[in-house]
Nucleic acid binder design. Sequence first.
DNA 1: CTATAATACTACCAAATTAGTAGGAATAGC
DNA 2: GCTATTCCTACTAATTTGGTAGTATTATAG
Lengths: 143, 143
Amino acid sequence: MKISTKGRYAIRIMLDLALNDKGDFIPLKNISERQGISVKYLEQIVTLLQKAGFVKSLRGNNGGYRLTKTPKDYTIGGILRITEGNLVPVSCLADAVNTCPRVDKCLTLPFWTGLQKVIKDYIDGTTLYDLLKGPDGGENFCI
Amino acid sequence: MKISTKGRYAIRIMLDLALNDKGDFIPLKNISERQGISVKYLEQIVTLLQKAGFVKSLRGNNGGYRLTKTPKDYTIGGILRITEGNLVPVSCLADAVNTCPRVDKCLTLPFWTGLQKVIKDYIDGTTLYDLLKGPDGGENFCI
DNA sequence: CTATAATACTACCAAATTAGTAGGAATAGC
DNA sequence: GCTATTCCTACTAATTTGGTAGTATTATAG
């Protein structure tokens, strides 16, 4: 019942790209130094973000990565699902429900469905911008 | 971000013990047949429940397991924590927070704290009795 | 046009976790 | 003493996690 490092790092990459956005592309080397994550591992994660259209890349000298949208347009749930897959607490909620023969009389399914909902509501109700602001409302933050 | 089989089975064991409670001890063999889980694996899980004082056991012939409290007195969160450990989404919430040097300026920590809270509120706000009743209010259930 | 700095792609790997199985010892009731 | 049960200690195969490594490709600067 844990979020993996990939998920946590994906959020930090997105935050880093937002905080250091000066209009040009940001190389992984810089993110690596700031975040203390190896370039090679960042590569793996940012590739997923790119395939999802969350960031765009430029190869070669002065290349790097950049957000494709404004921070308010990314939900944390959206970011996490890229690395974590469907964020359901039990797998019978993931695939079509027909896989489990107990469905009709399953006493636990409603509980899991409810758990999934509170998680989904929370993570999809928080945007990258909310995180950037910080808990204090972000009086010394500017984007 | 999944609940393991141990956690799910722990809930089903507790439900089974509640549903089939006739005052005497229920052997794992019966639970195994009803739930389709091997006796050996049930053993492993029910031992944890017993060490937590959630069930009591009797060895030997006519032995088995029994709940120690009424279903309303078990929260699902309490049951899950026995097999899953602390149910926190990221480990920095588990140990004393001092382990992470980024705490002060960590932009993601408030998000994780909030996620932990919605999960905790939900799982600790649901009891075994709520599951027994079922989603329809349990008109044909009697305990 | 060449050197350099970056992404892109493919492969590999060690450690931890998950989901069990196996065998035998202890014990309670008949 | 027989039987049905819990109790205890190992063991293990498969999967997931958390990375590392090497090479190819590409864009820019000079």
